[in-house]
């Protein structure tokens, strides 16, 4: 009575990786190389040990913040409170190092991690977009930092030894803070590859519903991402407090834009699921080389903000996966 028309199954494409994916994967690295070459034409000694040391020193806190943010962005969310948490961490360190010593160095990153747990828990259980929750958290921790510090910078005198090595120690002439940050990026990349659930955060960003409907604890994954972001913000706070010999209620705030810019220009998609800490490392290098480069060709540092803003928008426009967006708000 009925005849089903035979349908030919759609020919499967040879590979899931599109040309666009390949370009996005290689593009940041090319940008970095071109930038370095350009700067070299202006400053031939740009790759000297002293110059690289300075570069890496300024990169360390940005990279730590950016790695933390990478976890959240992989899940498709964002934590706008991360830079403020690093500022709060410097304040807490400045207040507690004199009395607690090493205890403060351990306690502060744990507390920073807990701020992430709090944000992540609200996002996961109340099911509210992360940019709103973390915006609220940003206000909350700004107020706390200002109150605890009476809105002023606190010099760290007693107890500085506990964090001083972060700035002073060199391995092969390079600052230990940046080396630790780079090492962390590599360790996390390896973990993503070798663990059976290593790509859980990527999958959160790509297909959270499918992940949950396969029996995975998606709420726990989400909270984990924010907790790691908090932890790395705390570590960034340690580096900042060490390099500035002080804690201040807005010490890390100015790093918010460069850190987000580092994440997105490295090729991590803001829609989640695509990226990793090595991409973020490339992004962070681009940002610091760019800063030096602008200086070298004589551009006023006043333009820096404009460039961060443009870089963030441009990188997001290029990497965003529009096929997976329903309504954009």
């Amino acid at each position: 009575m009925t005849t089903q028309t035979p349908t030919r199954p759609r020919a499967a494409v040879a590979s899931g990786i599109t040309v666009k994916d390949r370009v996005i994967a290689v593009f940041p690295l090319l940008v970095l190389i071109v930038l370095v070459l350009l700067v070299l034409t202006q400053q031939p000694n740009f790759l000297s040990i002293a110059s690289v040391r300075g570069l890496l020193e300024s990169m360390a806190p940005i990279l730590l913040l950016a790695i933390g943010q990478t976890f959240v962005i992989l899940t498709g969310g964002i934590d706008l409170s991360f830079a403020v948490v690093s500022s709060l961490s410097t304040v807490l360190l400045a207040l507690w190092l004199p009395d607690m010593g090493v205890g403060a160095l351990i306690l502060v990153p744990i507390l920073a991690c807990l701020t992430g747990v709090l944000t992540g828990t609200v996002v996961a259980f109340a099911q509210i977009p992360s940019f709103i929750v973390s915006l609220g958290a940003m206000g909350l921790w700004t107020g706390v930092a200002l109150t605890l510090s009476s809105a002023s910078t606190i010099r760290i005198s007693a107890g500085y030894d506990v964090i001083g090595w972060v700035t002073d120690m060199r391995i092969g002439g390079l600052p230990v803070s940046a080396l630790i940050a780079i090492l962390l990026a590599i360790i996390i990349s390896v973990a993503i590859r070798v663990l059976s659930r290593g790509r859980a955060l990527h999958t959160m960003g790509l297909a959270e519903n499918a992940l949950l409907m396969s029996g995975n604890p998606t709420r726990a994954y989400r909270i984990l991402a924010f907790a790691l972001c908090g932890l790395f913000s705390g570590l960034a706070g340690v580096v900042l407090a060490s390099s500035q010999y002080s804690g201040g209620p807005s010490l890390g705030d100015t790093l918010m834009l460069p850190a987000i810019a580092a994440v997105v220009i490295g090729g991590n998609a803001i829609t989640g699921g695509v990226g990793g800490p090595l991409k973020t490392l490339v992004g962070a290098l681009i940002i610091v080389v760019l800063r030096v480069g602008l200086n070298a060709i004589g551009i006023d540092p006043a333009y820096e903000q404009i460039i961060y803003g443009a870089v963030i928008i441009g990188a997001v426009v290029l990497t965003i996966d529009r096929s997976r967006l329903g309504i954009v708000k």
Partner: peptide, 21 residues
């Protein structure tokens, strides 16, 4: 397409999405 497959992951990753043990 929303709750069954994890779009963007490979066939292999989808096969072991529920239980990689």
């Amino acid at each position: 397409r929303i709750e069954g497959i994890a779009q963007g992951l490979s066939v292999q990753e989808n096969i072991f999405l529920a239980d990689p043990s």
